[in-house]
């Protein structure tokens, strides 16, 4: 398991397109700058979508873990 201090965990498993990224981008505004949000997704696309989204939205991906069909992504709010 990851050692990050998670401030918010978001369950995005099984969500239809394009909700995972939409929900994540909404929710990250609920945590203070500098804190970490963990999302749990099942979209294989999330593996590339979240890094691409983080780059364009100016946030940072700290870690991506694959756990069977589940994908845990740790995002640090940068601004």
């Amino acid at each position: 398991m990851s050692e990050h201090n998670v401030d918010l965990e978001l369950d995005l498993r099984g969500l239809a397109c394009p909700l995972p990224v939409v929900k994540a981008s909404k929710s990250i505004k609920d945590v203070p700058v500098g804190s970490v949000m963990k999302v749990v997704a099942t979209d294989p696309g999330a593996l590339a979508d979240f890094p691409a989204w983080a780059k364009t939205s100016g946030n940072e991906i700290l870690d991506i873990e694959r756990n069977g069909s589940e994908i845990n992504i740790f995002i640090k709010r940068m601004k």
């Binding site: 990224v21 939409v22 590339a48 989204w53 780059k55 364009t56």
Partner: peptide, 13 residues
């Protein structure tokens, strides 16, 4: 945001 992310994904695939 979704459009930007998709363009970015294309670059870094």
């Amino acid at each position: 945001m979704l459009a930007d992310a998709a363009v970015e994904k294309g670059k870094s695939i």
